[in-house]
Design a protein around this nucleic acid. Sequence first.
DNA 1: AGGCGCTCGTGAACGCGTGCACAAATCGTG
DNA 2: CACGATTTGTGCACGCGTTCACGAGCGCCT
Lengths: 259, 259
Amino acid sequence: MSQQRSERPAGSDSRPARSAAGLSADGSPGHGLPERGAPASELPDLPEATVARLPEYLRALHVLADGGGDVVSSEELAQAAGVNSAKLRKDLSYLRSNGTRGVGYDVGQLIDKIEHVLGLNQHRAVALVGVGNLGQALAGYGGFGSRGFHIAALFDADPTRVGDRIAGLSVRHIDELAEVVATEHIAIAVIATPAHAAQAVADALVDCGVTSILNFAPCVLSVPENVDVRKVDLAIELQILSFHEHRKSTLTALPEAIS
Amino acid sequence: MSQQRSERPAGSDSRPARSAAGLSADGSPGHGLPERGAPASELPDLPEATVARLPEYLRALHVLADGGGDVVSSEELAQAAGVNSAKLRKDLSYLRSNGTRGVGYDVGQLIDKIEHVLGLNQHRAVALVGVGNLGQALAGYGGFGSRGFHIAALFDADPTRVGDRIAGLSVRHIDELAEVVATEHIAIAVIATPAHAAQAVADALVDCGVTSILNFAPCVLSVPENVDVRKVDLAIELQILSFHEHRKSTLTALPEAIS
DNA sequence: AGGCGCTCGTGAACGCGTGCACAAATCGTG
DNA sequence: CACGATTTGTGCACGCGTTCACGAGCGCCT
Ligand SMILES: NC(=O)c1ccc[n+]([C@@H]2O[C@H](COP(=O)([O-])OP(=O)(O)OC[C@H]3O[C@@H](n4cnc5c(N)ncnc54)[C@H](O)[C@@H]3O)[C@@H](O)[C@H]2O)c1
Ligand SMILES: NC(=O)c1ccc[n+]([C@@H]2O[C@H](COP(=O)([O-])OP(=O)(O)OC[C@H]3O[C@@H](n4cnc5c(N)ncnc54)[C@H](O)[C@@H]3O)[C@@H](O)[C@H]2O)c1
């Protein structure tokens, strides 16, 4: 178990490990507005850190839009999203942003723009593999629809689970993966199986043409270069918190640190 | 709902936003082995990026230990953890690591060291607030014990849920929070309530003395400076994947990128 | 004992990300 | 029409994080 494939050990903490797939011909070291990319209205190669923040802005914008606001200043939006306002403005500037100086950003327009950049215009179909403890919670979660996704299919290897209906979907056997992925046009999958099964599931997903994987199993997945993997490991998050907790307690132990 | 507190908008993507709490008196720009910190055997102020990777190393080490290995080279361990070997060695060097040149690292010793640094020697007690869809999955998850934690108490505001028994624990009313946190010595809590309740829950937790929070609700929490918040937002992860998916499809759309 | 091969530890260089600070642009008003 | 208030867009510098490359130490074999 837990055998490493030879291809690539994806799944670093942050970015989904996209190695340059042939491009990056532009050798300019410039920081301002990289000009490579599709000619006209296409995204000019956003920094990963920016990409990771756009969803946060989008969430905050939806809250503002529901509140009736139609324009936001960078300061307001930044506070709502929990970031620095300068950072926010720089991030939005990568989107050829259409903020108005002296006024702010048009909320609706900005939502559209970010959703377009993130590719959320069409609701993306997501497959969920492993309908156990966690998988059932995810399948039953109603919050994805408003964020641009819908769970299109559930899979499990346990024959006693196959056929169960959860949130309007029936659980299908993992053998049907290829067929369903094709007919439902699924490009993104979630792995919620035990760790010992995760690599095999990932391999099967990749074989079916899935190119993005969100992995809940506590293990490293090896996938081909064109496949993105992001992982969520609960225990790791807790352990990071534990470190800071530990550090706090040893810090308060010393009475005076400043001489 | 979703009112912002004035204190501090914690919950950036990665690091738990620990602003310097008075120290950092050492003005040296040096990168090698910062020498501030407790005098003898204490942690020399690890970089956040390193802290975030230590749990990954720990997991890989446990797998190796179960496999019977007693020494690992940095190359092996790095591959098992999905990182660069130079990065691994630098990370471990911050722990005053006791690797042996020409041989490698002693697996057991390294496990002990990392667990000590992360403060995992004592099993830390964790409180879980919000025993809904997701909360039940977390409460029923058996994998925390081996990672240094145990769920010590469950809380919910819904009176019909209070009293339910899940995984050997009975759900208690949120009003009992202060009492239980004190008696169980809880310093870390998980929020799995709807977003509109999360800030109020966080406030209550902070009032009880909880200083680390893992937040599953899709919202920004404001907490005092000495409290660490990490968030896990499923939809954000999917949206980041969606971006790369979108990018892939627009890339393959152009037939030839290289002139 | 001496040499040889192996692996750790780390100095140094590079690139990315962040935040300050300011110029440019827009709106409202008299 | 001119001016001031306001807010965006961004040049620039700094610090953190990553990676290469190599010296330093350790064990083994002869
Ligand atoms: N439950 C949690 O709160 C939690 C927390 C952190 C991490 N995780 C991780 O998430 C994963 C799932 O956790 P869980 O509690 O739901 O486990 P679980 O055992 O309840 O569910 C796993 C499901 O995967 C199915 N499965 C096994 N092999 C499969 C295969 N080859 N193909 C398809 N399906 C397969 C099983 O039949 C089962 O239904 C685990 O890796 C766990 O470590 C869970
Ligand atoms: N279920 C998922 O897979 C999933 C995925 C992504 C994000 N989330 C987020 O996780 C959170 C929980 O999701 P869920 O599906 O379990 O929701 P849920 O509605 O099933 O459960 C929420 C629980 O919190 C309790 N609660 C409400 N207010 C409370 C309060 N003030 N104090 C204590 N308890 C309170 C409710 O009684 C309920 O039991 C939500 O914020 C959701 O957006 C869930």
